[in-house]
Design a protein around this nucleic acid. Structure first.
Lengths: 139, 139
DNA sequence: ATCGAAACCTCCAGCCACTGGAGACATCAT
DNA sequence: ATGATGTCTCCAGTGGCTGGAGGTTTCGAT
């Protein structure tokens, strides 16, 4: 297994260099060994771990949840009810956000629909924003 | 039109007290007159403006966009193409977010579906997170 | 072996949009 | 007059990075 400089690791995982250092700062990535000159040298294991983090981030898990997930991944003998709970919570959150955004989308469309580009004085957009009662749903 | 203390204004608009002061700091709300003792005293106009801001925030407009929208609202003679543009941009953003979240939702469901609560060692959740190739769509 | 460009180092500040706490002063009902 | 509640300013922290300044290391080409 070859070694990676921080830039190579960045290219391999799609995680930006300062972000990798940030993950080290907050203890999400272990501090790797250093070269003679003090530069970070990462192992393939480190690369996999960063890949795991990146993937979880793409799925919107907060870093604290990822911390727990990594902890689990490192203890294969434990029951995985926690992973279940974390992923379930994320799904519920995603569902809620989709619902909220869908209502919002309708509201925005309604705003833009009845809108003939004229003067601000009779602009439906400005009007709706100024008066909550002019909304169909609450948001 | 009655006067509002900052707490009353907060109750009237649903915007928290420190947030109101924050809006003043960044110049989104005008600095209101003060009482003898130096406390803020708001007019009905100020309340309406804060309501406008709160409503726009609920719709997810960033503060900078809201700054522009307020500016527009205060010049009713201008054409409202800008309002159109800002709202349109927000709608596009919302659409994109919904699409992304919907893909994510499917991925999470897939993860949770094939998941019998057992040991971490054969946990589909941990497995998928560790291996990007096990995803249906890219995210 | 030497040069020079690129990548790397640390530290610090900033982004957005708030949120909360400390410690001191103001207001208001009783 | 008292005491509870509200308000004041200032500062620091949240999440999750991102970028810059100013200096050092690495590595390939000569």
């Amino acid at each position: 297994m070859r070694e990676y400089s921080i830039g190579e690791l960045s290219r391999a995982t799609g995680v930006k260099v300062p972000t990798i250092r940030y993950y080290e700062d907050i203890g999400l990535m272990n501090a790797p060994p250093r070269s003679e000159g003090g530069q970070r040298r990462y192992s393939g294991t480190a690369r996999d771990r960063l890949g795991f983090i990146a993937h979880a981030r793409e799925m919107g898990f907060p870093l604290e949840a990822i911390r727990s997930l990594i902890d689990l991944a490192e203890h294969p003998d434990r029951p995985c009810a926690d992973a279940d709970r974390i992923a379930g919570a994320r799904l519920a959150e995603v569902d809620a956000r989709i619902a909220r955004l869908t209502r919002l989308k309708r509201e925005l469309e309604r705003m833009l629909d009845g809108h003939r580009s004229g003067k601000v004085a009779d602009c439906r957009i400005i009007e709706v924003l100024g008066d909550h009662a002019k909304c169909a749903s609450d948001h």
